[in-house]
């Protein structure tokens, strides 16, 4: 039984039992090269749910504040290993109610970066097929077909993955994927090595350059599963007006710095912001750098232990240290 079949079966059962009002998974988008979040209410509709290496959306986004509709809905959802960390982070902070959730963990062997594939062709992609594990066959609008090895076109975050299996789930869609030895190897920070080697001035220039292209659509904020202020976001506040609404490299950078500080110790590096950004800004730079600082200082990896408090909730003024 495939993982996809497991997902459909769990979803149908949970809907039929009335355990959930709706179930969130993934389905095909406007063509077979795209996958989009799916919201299923009727057990008869579970056949639209799919599982392929294109299922990149972190569905935890859709259970954060103001997303459930109706607000008190009981929700079922699929989580990959990385997604489960954001769920654990929200549970640690008591921002979601475990009792209203039904979680299906989906063991994952790596998500394909559609943008990497897009860049290989001038034409649009109309189909991405996975004839067997590890093979990716891409077809364009003009009918050009090319094959890639899955490992060559993975999302960058997947290349560093240490949690292929969900850390929190009620049910699991099939056998677990092999886990790396996390004791042996700590987090891999190689993605920000180049950035870290820059001087302060060079860092400033590099950041201003990438954020100059920001169009302030706030997709990065809205898609971020641990960004929970919703309609009270400081970046949109006019009263007080703390961040200029005008668009420019420095203003954009300031707003991203605020985002970074606000998710410090909470960001699980799921990469949803990178993938949502319509102008492809490498948003990971700031968040990953902050994650590394927190890991180095406190040994804290957000969203990995359900019984742990987030690092900045442990801060104690009286003792001036973090708990221990």
């Amino acid at each position: 039984m495939s993982r996809q079949d497991h997902i459909r079966e769990f979803a149908a059962q949970a809907l039929a039992d009335g355990r959930v009002d709706y179930f969130i998974g993934w389905k095909q988008g406007y063509n077979s090269s795209e996958v989009v979040p799916a919201f299923v209410k009727d057990p008869a509709d579970v056949d639209q749910l799919i599982w392929t290496p294109l299922c990149h959306h972190n569905l935890v986004t859709f259970i954060k504040r103001n997303m459930p509709d109706p607000a008190d809905a009981k929700i079922g959802l699929c989580v990959k290993g990385c997604d489960s960390r954001t769920l654990v982070a929200l549970l640690q902070e008591e921002l979601v109610d475990k009792e209203k959730l039904y979680v299906v963990g989906v063991p994952c062997d790596g998500i394909v970066d559609r943008r990497k594939l897009e860049k290989e062709f001038a034409d649009e992609l109309v189909d991405i097929a996975f004839p067997e594990r590890g093979r990716v066959v891409v077809t364009t609008g003009k009918g050009e077909t090319r094959e890639f090895a899955q490992d060559d076109v993975l999302l960058d975050v997947c290349g560093r993955c240490r949690y292929p299996n969900a850390l929190y789930a009620d049910d699991v869609a099939g056998p677990l994927e092999a886990e790396p030895d996390r004791e042996e190897s700590g987090p891999d920070w190689s993605d920000i090595a180049d950035f870290e080697n820059l001087s302060d001035d060079e860092k400033q220039a590099a950041l201003e350059r990438v954020y100059a292209t920001c169009i302030r659509c706030f997709a990065c904020v809205h898609v971020c599963p641990v960004c929970v202020c919703w309609d009270k976001c400081v970046n949109r506040s006019r009263e007080p007006e703390l961040v200029a609404q005008k668009v420019g490299a420095k203003e954009n950078l300031l707003f991203q710095m605020i985002h970074m500080f606000h998710v410090a110790g909470r960001c699980t590096s799921c990469g949803a912001c990178d993938r949502a950004c319509p102008v492809e800004i490498p948003l990971y730079l700031l968040h990953r750098k902050m994650n590394k600082e927190i890991y180095d200082m406190f040994g804290f990896e957000p969203g990995t232990k359900l019984d742990e408090k987030p690092v900045f909730q442990l801060f104690d003024l009286a003792t001036d240290h973090f708990g221990d």
């Binding site: 709706y22 989009v36 979040p37 799916a38 919201f39 986004t61 859709f62 509709d69 169009i215 302030r216 659509c217 706030f218 997709a219 904020v221 809205h222 898609v223 949502a276 319509p278």
Partner: peptide
């Protein structure tokens, strides 16, 4: 509207 994340991308492109 379920899968809408309420950003402004569609309007800005």
């Amino acid at each position: 509207a379920m899968r809408c994340i309420s950003c402004g991308t569609c309007t800005y492109v």
